[in-house]
Nucleic acid binder design. Structure first.
Length: 425
DNA sequence: TCTGGGGTCCTAGGACCC
DNA sequence: TCTGGGGTCCTAGGACCC
């Protein structure tokens, strides 16, 4: 049996753990740059605030509605997420973290186990040990467990176990609510006569080939019938295949120096993640996104998205050293920059990632490479001890006018000594 | 004025090899 | 006038997830 444990309104719940005044109030957590709503409390959802609503559209009404906003605080959420996974590890050694707020538990228990009781115990322990409320869904496959979890969240106990015969439930479930079926696929499926999950589950293999669906769709259908068909671990967090760091500019960038500094900062952050994974990268994709052309009346739903412009860079040798990576990507910024244009976002995607000490070690004899590696290690050590960003390469800039806005940031009481809560008695 | 960030997988098509 | 067959690897683009 698989249990999917999923935190309720995770980011908002994290904020509430250390600020109980937020309990019972409509709360929303904003994306980076205080851009739009990415997590909502139940009270906030009840007010009709949709996911992805831009902050500036809500700010004026916030007072009247009693809405409370927080900037996203990933340091806090990441730490509480780790604590939840740790807690879940007391139920089974086989915990598969799927995202920051959900995990699959692989359970080897008798078929007549009281799943409702077990689910209630999991919820109670996670709530007591971390302060985060969650829902639990039980089923023989991940896809069915997702559905069970959704049903559970609508029940008072927050727990639901998929019955042996899921047909009545799946017949009532619109196909777009199935895990792995997005907007586009749902559209194609409807045209092919598939409107509910049970119809999808029971189509024969020829059906999927005739309509040119990818094999992933066939796997989803199998999973809906209770036949496991997804990978043991869909995302291997210890060994990423690519590492991406990108940010919107706090205000549009118009100077080459802004672009260069932002890209250097993103590349430095990406390199740090790379070293943490114990890996090296063979190259990078450096990209920028322009603001909408002038005269289009600002951002509307139709034009707020513009294409990315990118340049691919191959490193002289696979590396994780910040100076080597910065030197390699530096010319890319100049290639992408056109004077007079306004840029809204920039990013660096490291690719060709492999474990350090593999074939890349052929080049480890290079003294320059070794020196840079040592320097990067020292950088990481200093920043780990004295806080992120204590030491950085000057290429990232010191003024950082392009930095993002986080005006409503909460403290980090679990990861910074200076932010630890103080009790007076 | 102001709309996030980070991943994965699959497929088709081109380049290249023998 | 007439020129095979079977592979692999890489990349871009499209889809999905949270």
């Amino acid at each position: 049996m698989i249990a999917l444990v999923d935190a309720n309104s995770f980011y908002v719940s994290c904020e509430r753990v250390f600020d109980p005044r937020l309990e019972g109030r409509p709360v929303a957590v904003l994306s980076n740059n205080d851009g739009c709503v990415i997590s909502r409390s139940a009270e906030c959802k009840a007010l009709g605030v949709e996911m992805g609503t831009p902050y500036f559209k809500l700010r004026d009404r916030a007072k009247a509605l009693g809405l409370v906003f927080r900037s996203s605080n990933y340091e806090l959420y990441g730490d509480l997420s780790a604590r939840i996974v740790q807690t879940l590890g007391t139920f089974t050694p086989d915990v598969e973290q799927y995202s920051i707020d959900e995990a699959f538990l692989h359970l080897s228990l008798p078929a007549d186990t009281d799943w409702d009781a077990l689910g209630a115990e999991i919820r109670a322990r996670v709530l007591r040990w971390t302060g985060i409320p969650c829902g639990v869904g039980f089923a023989p496959t991940r896809t069915l467990a997702k559905i069970a979890n959704h049903i559970g969240k609508r029940r008072p106990g927050g727990v639901f176990a998929m019955p042996a015969d899921p047909e009545p439930l799946l017949t009532k479930l619109p196909v777009e609510e199935v895990w792995g079926v997005g907007r586009r696929l749902a559209e194609r499926m409807r045209r092919a006569g598939v409107r509910d999950a049970w119809t999808l589950a029971t189509r024969p293999p020829e059906f999927f080939r005739r309509h040119r669906f990818a094999v992933t769709v066939e796997r989803t259908a199998l999973e809906l019938r209770g036949v496991p068909a997804t990978d043991a671990d869909p995302i291997d967090r210890e060994n990423p295949q690519s590492i991406n760091v990108s940010r919107m500019f706090g205000r549009p960038a118009t100077e080459l120096a802004d672009l260069e500094e932002a890209l250097a900062a993103h590349a430095s952050a990406a390199a740090e993640k790379l070293r943490k994974a114990g890996s090296v990268a063979a190259g990078a994709n450096v990209y920028v996104q322009e603001c909408a052309p002038p005269g289009t009346g600002g951002w509307t739903d139709a034009n707020w998205w513009t294409p990315f412009l990118s340049a691919t860079v191959a490193f002289p040798a696979p590396t994780a050293a910040t100076p080597a990576i910065l030197a390699a990507i530096r010319p890319a910024a100049a290639r992408l920059f056109v004077a007079g244009r306004r840029y809204r976002r920039s990013g660096v995607l490291l690719c060709g990632i492999e474990p350090a000490g593999g074939a890349a070690d052929l080049f480890a004899g290079d003294p320059a490479e070794t020196k840079e590696a040592k320097l990067s290690a020292a950088l990481d050590a200093v920043n780990a001890k004295f806080g992120r960003g204590t030491v950085f390469l000057a290429a990232s800039g010191t003024k950082r006018p392009w930095r993002m806005k986080r005006d409503l940031l909460s403290p980090c009481p679990t990861t910074r000594w200076s932010d630890v809560l103080v009790a007076k008695c």
